[in-house]
């Protein structure tokens, strides 16, 4: 059964009166537990497609149904709440808040829940243990290496136990060794914790970890 159903979506941006189409009539399904890699040249629309699936952007036409919810029908606040429950986000540049420790960064999404302080602590420590950074929880992002920062970002993404992890070039800012560690971790999250992962990447080695690779070119699936 498909977890994500994408039907005839198109996305265009407008520059003054000029329409710039980015995605054209895309339809495909993603089954639950899948590890999908979206590949394609720069400007092919893969990040735009990821943003639409993640619910941080809206298609010009078409619908996206995730876990039975048509996310196009959700208002801004409902969509934000939906994202906090269903989606975990991993960015290329980690996007950790520099004034917060690793623990506090991972705890951020839990502030939106009704969990008690102790429950939050347990969840955060568990997430940091999964990524192997329980010893670094009091460290600030600037005290961590790039690979460690990305692992904190992954812990932040999984701490609410979301159904789907979306990763936009998760190894794009890392050296080879760190990139390999991150990909192993994502692999583990998919196989051991059954997370559905949708990853945008340029890196063929990263794509090798995925079970399914879809290529985008000029806004169309090839």
């Amino acid at each position: 059964m498909s977890l994500v159903a994408i039907k005839n979506i198109s996305k265009s941006y407008w520059r003054d009166s000029l329409e710039i189409p980015v995605l054209r009539n895309i339809s495909f399904d993603i089954p639950e537990g899948e590890f999908l890699a979206l590949m394609g040249p720069s400007g092919s629309g893969k990040t735009t497609l990821l943003n639409l699936i993640a619910g941080i952007d809206r298609p010009t036409t078409g619908s996206i149904v995730i876990g039975g919810t048509d996310i196009g029908g959700l208002g801004e606040t409902a969509l934000a709440q939906w994202r906090s429950r269903i989606m975990g986000f991993i960015f290329q540049f980690y996007n950790l808040l520099p004034v917060l420790t690793a623990f506090e960064n991972v705890e951020l999404p839990l502030l939106l829940t009704k969990l008690s302080s102790k429950e939050r602590r347990d969840h955060v420590e568990f997430a940091l243990k999964i990524v192997g950074l329980e010893e670094r929880m009091r460290h600030y992002p600037k005290q961590l290496s790039g690979g460690q920062e990305q692992r904190v970002a992954i812990a932040r993404a999984i701490v609410t136990d979301p159904t789907i992890l979306v990763a936009d070039e998760p190894t794009g800012d890392l050296d080879k060794v760190s990139a390999e560690e991150i990909m192993k971790l994502l692999d583990r999250l998919n196989s051991e914790f059954k997370k559905t992962i949708i990853m945008v990447t340029h890196d063929p080695r990263a794509a090798e970890r995925a079970h399914l690779v879809r290529h985008l070119d000029k806004g169309e699936l090839s």
Partner: peptide, 16 residues
């Protein structure tokens, strides 16, 4: 701006 965008991505609402 980017940090607020991240917070919004994580589910922080307009009120937050």
């Amino acid at each position: 701006i980017r940090e607020y965008a991240v917070l919004k991505t994580l589910g922080f609402t307009r009120g937050h």
